[in-house]
Amino acid sequence: MKLASRKTATADVTRRQRSAHSSKEALYWIGPAALVILLIFGYSVVSVLISSFRYDGDWVGLENFEIVITDPIFLTALKHNGLLLLAVPVLIILAFILAVTLFETRRGMRFYRSAIFLPYILPIPVVAVVFGQIYQLNGALNIFLRSIGLEPLAQDWLGDPSIALGTMSSVIIWKEVGFGVILMLAHIISLPNETYEAARIDGAGFWRTHLSITRPAILNTIVFYGVIEAITMVSWVFNYVYVMSNGLGGPGNATMVSELYIYRAAFQNKAPELAAVAAVFLFVATLILMVAFFRIQRRSIAGTFNK
């Protein structure tokens, strides 16, 4: 018994020594890159943080924060980022449906896959300009709707403040869904075929198979895609909004988002300190999403191993 415990103790010490040695080695490997990242990102973050407390070089405490958080345009921008998050579940469901449909498609899968992925690789400004034309009151979409007798459905898609944000999110969904499809499809293809065969033998239909087998099997990928898209909606929609609303976030402030607010504060309104405050908020929001992602991921990996 004693011998056994001594052996265990020795093994523990060796493991600890090995672990310390490997952590040191890991540090040497990642050290230079980590330092570069720390300097580049760390400098920027600290610099922005300092700017947010200054005005024209003078320390002003929380004055800039007060101005920004009481600015109705900034609050509207935050609200719109929040509303855009509603597009994430739509994206996930659409991407999942398309991915399993493509998986089940025997003929022409490559073609359909490319067709669905194509929007994702198109430059955002090109997409935004094209959709900007299509969505005009007398643009292609409304001309089509009128031609098939659906005149009441023809709207001022980007000119009407009540629907402009929804219109813009439809463009974002159209462009971003391809990324999810490819991610999910790649994961589905790598799953063992036997599971599906067994399900078929047991009489499981299309939906039953994919909801009970595919969905849990690719949950990690779904979560990953969901978080990436959430980050996109919070801090990566600038290009769409800038091009489609000519840099205004209009009509009115109907498509104003926090990134555009930052850009306009910094480069149009000559208020870098207010842009810095808004950037701090955006940074914190993105950080929360990233932390949430890593937690969910860790939990889901742990769950997979426990099973």
């Binding site: 000119g159 009407d160 403040p161 209009g250 009509p251 009115g252």
Partner: peptide
């Protein structure tokens, strides 16, 4: 000009 005039002209016309 941008925050008040541009914006409100759009909204009044709509």
């Amino acid at each position: 000009d941008a925050d008040a005039v541009f914006k409100n002209v759009q909204l009044v016309l709509k």
